[in-house]
Design a protein around this nucleic acid. Structure first.
Ligand code: MN
Ligand code: MN
Ligand code: ZN
Ligand code: ZN
Lengths: 141, 141
DNA sequence: ACGCAAATTGGAACAATTCTAATCTATGAG
DNA sequence: CTCATAGATTAGAATTGTTCCAATTTGCGT
């Protein structure tokens, strides 16, 4: 077997779950296949559930929520906060930022190398930086 | 009368509403007084409603929501998206960014002069930049 | 195969927000 | 001033996204 990165898009769903120490249940396998079929997907619980339904995957909405949170906890997904009423999950866990198309609820990646934030002051005493998130809000002309 | 900026914190609630072309109702006046009493406040509808209740201001929650949105539309407040389950409003409408203390739901201002974002690529065709928002997520040690 | 911890599920519960339709009020025309 | 009316407020219902719950099912080590 060729040398392979720990977590690659071409890694199959089973291996992914194993690496994350999550039981490879039918639901998790099928959701992982949907999620990691392509790169850089941005989904909400609802959108993923719908996609599952369309693809004939039988999973309850509760399980979609559970799975997204478990994948996030396992580092397979990251959560992106751009909208006060919906939670987005991102299959791209690397360093990058986002354009957010307000009226469409669409997220577009900005590679981490392109963008940079400088001059972030030290946080107040007793606080440690977790992440620096940039959201470029854009509107369709 | 001394020369005065268009929208200053020391401006009284009535003048503020007049400048924003909003009828100076009792509720709007009282909420404006609470909001602009100090600089740089970050409130949620719930927190402002509670504060009102504490201060003996009689306003319904529906009106708090209406008022926050109207103030925002009038440019008196800006909305800050940092949490997927709550909407924050900011009395500081100038250029600045935020620390967000995750578990406490607390927002802390970062002056706009200190922080700077560079390398934002041009948005995809047909999209125009609305704002560039930086959220530095921090955790209590 | 069995037993059991872990996972799934439908539906109830929740929390934040918006909506509705009835009532009240600021305002400006007369 | 008085009044008519457009605009504002309100209680409570409705909606939405998400979490919780208790019952059932399933993956997996023995
Ligand atoms: Mn502020
Ligand atoms: Mn919600
Ligand atoms: Zn992304
Ligand atoms: Zn602020």
């Amino acid at each position: 077997m060729a040398n392979m990165a720990y977590d690659t898009p071409e890694m199959d769903a089973g291996a992914r779950l194993k690496a994350a120490r999550l039981r490879p249940t039918r639901q998790r396998l099928e959701l992982a296949r949907l999620l990691f079929r392509e790169h850089d997907r941005h989904v909400t619980a609802e959108s993923l559930a719908e996609e599952g339904a369309r693809m004939g995957v039988k999973v309850s909405l509760a399980t979609v929520y559970n799975t997204l949170h478990q994948f996030k906890a396992a580092g397979l997904l990251r959560q992106v906060v751009v909208d006060a009423s919906r939670t987005y999950f991102d299959t791209n866990v690397g360093d990058h930022q986002h354009f957010f198309v307000e009226n469409e609820g669409l997220l577009i990646d900005i590679p981490g190398e392109e963008i940079s934030v400088s001059g972030v002051p030290n946080p107040p005493q007793g606080l440690t930086i977790d992440s620096v998130d940039v959201v470029v809000r854009v509107k369709r002309n």
